[in-house]
Design a protein around this nucleic acid. Structure first.
Lengths: 348, 348
DNA sequence: CTGTTAGCGCATTCAT
DNA sequence: ATGAATGCGCTAACAG
């Protein structure tokens, strides 16, 4: 009963090549009904008679029609069905897993994720946020780069904003964080419990929020063990494995070197591991972030593990929550903390 | 000279809370001009007088106006300024780096990336592709999951399609591949040059395209060395480190075990490494994919390295090329191969 | 240089 | 149960 192989709808004047996508009107014409009936059919409106529905659906199939969500969303209120996701470095497995978590949750509700990568450049972040705003994203999840987050104000963005991994500064917004303090504290406590008496800390510059939190956790554990944080044993580096190795090497070269080291992230841990391997020093290692092969390095390692995907999923849930809110509700900013666990490798 | 703090444009009836975004008409009213003039100003049309331009720009600033790209794109021809990126597993660093490469190139031209993750599920891939089509993406980059790619036909998608990492099947489309054959061949050749006489191969099931290519490369190198591929030394596993370890263990348990092993990907290599570590066997290792810490494992390792980001960048370039084409040009499908290099770790 | 008309593709409102 | 008019926000095409 399918009609004769229809010629594709007449392309717009001038473009003979690209078989211009059929619109709802083409379908209507083909099915011998009005565009409204097609629209209703596609919306699964129960008022459409089943015979009409069938005619419409055949026309849809024959023409290969796909509803234009752009036009639909415009008519529906100007939103896009898109969620903006702005991260600092997608090449970092941490953020790609976060992205995966976001995608998994938003995908369940038909929202799609638009990606932006800042490379830790606040300037670029501003640009990306503006572009996403112009595209009328229904919400945004951002791992903020700079120190001032005022440009992430949901008001100016025109949609809810959720920060991930780092808390808002100069801004009232939901956020999802890792338990940086608790994780660092517990790992450090285990390090001390294993007999370390001269603990050291190696991390990024102190203005990096996660590093400062992890340092707080480190300090707390040290003090709770009745020890004191030795300033000479607190070092910062610039985030690469190489600089971490260098900084760890300096610690080991001290006249009275530390006997244990807490590293504020995985690259730091790897740098420290290299320094230990190269020098053959006796240094118990702990660090934030679990990583593949940690169990294969042949040295004992106490690591703080957590699920980056969970960070993304929680962020997406907070966001969807806000999007669902009428807006009059004005729920106050929420803060979700993702738990950490401590894992030990290479014991014995 | 800025006017008095204007009350935000009257919200639509019923929504008193969200300060509805200003439209081009609000700006026009505020600036005392017509919407067209605002539109022209925003497009940097030189015909607008500088005085008018200033008035408009102040109004824009005062109202916090942002052009609605959705409406704009609809009017301009129904495209979205979006590129769809469908990958199999974003948690895999390979694909996240690929994504970063795509984002970097498309971002230069104002295109944004919409993400989709299939988890290797062809069904989900179909759904994602349809959704992206409905959103009128201007193009799509896909790491295809199944064996049949007919649903990726640019005609039905309505936009150019570029495949990445795996070649098209039942489909004519551009694609970007890694030199799987060449890389495997060279690494295997080095393995043999190091004295291996009884080479083995461990990979995924043979219907996985990359594995079969890499096996071809392995075989070529073996034959070029005047040896033969021993069928008992060719094994498949299911892609996890654990199954790889198991399969490698079986090889090592043979009465006359191999003295060298080529692993078809990084998880395979890691599994084999574990098996070697556990059993203490003498087995020279080579494999496809470089990975962090490969130099720290304490065993010699010959690895095939390449830049996944380059795969993404090339894919994005092919796509933009197609998008720019008039469509009448009908350039034939192109295939770009990203080169590999062989790196050796732990020698001595 | 600026304004008016018209319409991108779709869905709400009001008719029938 | 279906259709006609109207407009989402924006901009070509054509006035003036």
């Amino acid at each position: 009963m399918t009609g004769p192989p229809t010629t594709p709808p007449a392309g717009r004047p001038g473009s003979r090549s690209a078989p211009a996508r059929p619109t709802i009107r083409d379908v209507a014409t083909r099915a011998g009904v009005s565009p409204m009936t097609v629209s209703r059919t596609l919306r699964d409106d129960p008022r459409v008679s089943s015979t009409t529905r069938e005619r419409v659906m055949s026309a849809v199939a024959e023409l290969g029609y796909r509803r234009n969500e752009l036009a639909r969303n415009l008519r529906l209120g100007g939103s896009s069905g898109l969620v903006g996701l702005v991260v600092t470095n997608l090449a970092n497995p941490f953020y790609s897993q976060l992205a995966l978590g976001v995608e998994a949750v938003t995908g369940e509700h038909g929202l799609k994720v638009v990606l932006g990568n800042t490379g830790e450049d606040p300037q670029r972040e501003r640009r990306l946020v503006e572009e996403l705003t112009s595209r009328r994203v229904d919400g945004m999840i951002v791992v903020p780069a700079g120190g001032d987050h005022s440009h992430l104000d949901p008001i100016s963005v025109g949609a809810p904003v959720v920060l991930a991994a780092r808390p808002p500064a100069n801004l009232s917004a939901d956020c999802v964080l890792v338990d940086d303090f608790g994780g660092a504290r517990e790992a450090t406590a285990r390090l001390l419990a294993s007999g370390v008496r001269r603990p050291a800390f190696l991390g990024l510059p102190s203005w990096v929020w996660t590093t400062s939190e992890r340092f707080r956790g480190f300090s707390a554990a040290v003090q709770e063990a009745g020890l004191e944080v030795d300033d000479r044993f607190v070092r910062r580096h610039h985030g690469t494995i190489a600089t971490a190795q260098e900084a760890a090497g300096e610690l080991l070269a001290l006249q009275d070197p530390p006997d244990g080291l807490f590293c504020a992230n995985s690259r730091t841990t790897l740098g420290a591991f290299r320094a230990v391997t190269v020098t053959g020093a006796q240094l118990a290692l702990a660090g934030f972030d679990d990583f593949e092969l940690a169990d294969m390095l042949g040295v004992p390692l106490i690591l703080v593990a957590y699920d980056p995907g969970e960070l993304g999923r929680q962020a997406a849930r907070l966001l969807e929550d806000r999007m669902a809110a009428t807006g009059d509700a004005e729920l106050p900013p929420r803060r979700v903390v993702v738990p950490t666990t401590v894992v030990e490798y290479g014991r014995g």
